[in-house]
């Protein structure tokens, strides 16, 4: 029996070990292209610093916007009964199914309509601007935020909200004093994960905002540009930064999830 148990455990663990080895090989293979001197030298370059700054800025703004929209939307989908709810619930998932490039194309084409031209006349221009980067990232991540938060709200016992109402809270008060505090961990996790998704976004961002160096080029699009120009030191430096940010984010998620509410 013991042998069978051990065999079972090994058969479950083996694919995991192989996967970790594969990822470590991928990362360590970069070491031949990486040196600290080159890394710091690259960091001093303006276009690289601009890409990092833009990525951090745009990901922060787009994920905050996404959360602001996603919290009420997810709550509505989780709690409120309204006509067409099933259709809307499915429709919301569309950006998760569509490739980011198709999403980017949709945004870009929408600017070529009378509404887009009208907005342009008022000075609101999105294509090939920082606002375009934010909009592209927002479009890609908002559905993910809604999906994550909907499941968070569904896990909260509606009786707690009802009891809060009867103890004197208005609907908004019950949401503020009971629902949101109980959803805190889910909201934090959603913010961190959508931010991570936004900072790594490439397809939609390139389609909408382009890759103008020092203007609209983000971390992922700069990696693409560096590789296209065979600038390996720059590409590796950018990848190291992206991997560092990703590890920090994953660590953040772990801390949030393990923290007791």
């Amino acid at each position: 029996m013991l042998h069978r148990d051990t065999a079972f455990k090994i058969s479950m663990l083996l694919p995991l070990v192989l996967l970790i080895v594969y990822f470590l090989l991928l990362i360590s293979s970069q070491s031949s292209f990486f040196s600290l001197t080159v890394f710091f030298d690259q960091l001093s370059r303006g276009d690289l610093r601009s890409a990092v700054t833009l990525s951090l800025f745009a990901a922060t703004i787009s994920s905050l916007l996404a959360i602001v929209i996603a919290i009420p939307s997810a709550y509505a989908l989780a709690r409120i009964h309204f006509p067409g709810k099933q259709f809307i619930d499915t429709f919301i998932d569309l950006p998760m199914i569509l490739t980011p490039i198709a999403l980017g194309t949709l945004i870009l084409m929408s600017w070529n309509t009378s509404m887009g031209r009208l907005l342009s006349n008022f000075g609101i221009t999105l294509p090939f601007t920082v606002a375009g980067v934010v909009l592209a990232q927002f479009t890609v991540i908002v559905a993910i935020s809604i999906r994550m938060l909907k499941s968070t709200f569904e896990q909260i016992n509606p009786r707690q909200e009802q009891v809060a109402r009867l103890l004197g809270c208005s609907a908004f008060g019950s949401f503020r004093h009971v629902t949101l505090p109980l959803a805190k961990r889910g909201v934090m996790t959603a913010i961190i994960l959508t931010w991570a998704r936004a900072i790594g976004e490439f397809g939609a961002t390139v389609m909408v905002a382009g890759t103008a160096k020092g203007q609209t080029a983000t971390l992922p699009s700069s990696i693409y540009l560096a590789m296209s120009a065979a600038d390996l030191p720059k590409a590796v430096t950018l990848m190291v930064i992206l991997i560092g940010i990703s590890l920090l984010v994953l660590l953040g998620v772990r801390v949030v999830l393990e923290h007791k509410p």
Binding site: Q160, V163, K184
Partner: peptide, 11 residues
């Protein structure tokens, strides 16, 4: 209101 599951606020 005291519901069956009490609905105490865990936070």
């Amino acid at each position: 209101y005291l519901p069956q599951d009490l609905a105490l606020f865990p936070h």
